[in-house]
Amino acid sequence: MTVEDQAMEQAAPAEARGPAPIVPSDSIAGTALLAVIAIMTFLAALTLGAVVLVRASAAEWQSQIAREVTIQVRPAEGRDTEAEVRKAAGLALAAPGVTDVRPYTRAESARLLEPWLGTGLALEELPVPRLIVVKTGADAPDLAALRQQLAREVPGATLDDHRAWVGHMRAMARSAVAAGLGVLALVLAAAMLSVTFATRGAMSTNRPIVEVLHFVGAKHAFIAGEFQRHFLLLGLKGGAIGGGVAILLFFLAGALGRWLRGSAGESQATALFGSLALGPEGYAAIIGLIILVGAVTAGTSRLTVHRTLRAME
């Protein structure tokens, strides 16, 4: 910018910086609506974050569990359980896709039962089932063959691939996600209602302006645009405040979790806060939500203006 340009700019009146808004921003009950939108966005962002967390955790558990199957060998009168365990482990190791086989010893199996049965039990006298943990590769091998083989050759052995568990978990995660999305929809609907009322209020406050706009030949779309400008800004501002606070909270929870894990080893608290650490896709979802709130606010007010104008004719 040259010196002359600067001088020109200073000489121009303040009003030269573009025309004033036709609908004055202080005529819109902005503060209340801003607060409502901020609160709604905050709640929606928390819900959205929770949905993302549940989905991520469920996927992780699933992939862990899906890579593990167990063989249970039930002792019976007149059979050598140790030999059956060894045989079953051998069959499993030979099966295609299996990467690791670990039979639990009698003592280990007993320890698994301790919480229920207490210590100091003479385990030899109890028919405690023995577990063999079989790890499989990422691509699930065909376990049907192994299952049949076990049934044929080791009478006391059954194969459990946790399919039922995975199914349950998938269903639970699905319903948690569905509930979260339901809450999200409700919050958005409530925000839309507030915007509708605020727009109607703004229109009746500014009725003289709307009339003059009509008389100078403004089409409905133009009038709607003049109101929409304010509401888009309000929506984005409120959304940024509410979503920003939620992002801050998730960030702090994640940082706290990392710090606790670093200083105090595993505990309930670290488990809790560790699971609150939102990944980048979670933050992206909240930013998307802020934009969605802005768009919904603007769209709702536009629709309301159009509807009110049609009723005014």
Binding site: A20, I22, P24, P208, I209, H214, F215, G217, K219, H220
Partner: peptide
């Protein structure tokens, strides 16, 4: 409504009570 707006653009109106917008210069 749109056709009405188009027609009104061909008409200039001076209102008895002016109807100027007070917040605009």
């Amino acid at each position: 409504p749109d056709a009405m707006a188009t027609l009104r653009r061909r008409i200039g109106i001076v209102f008895q009570d002016f109807r100027l917008l007070d917040h605009l210069s």
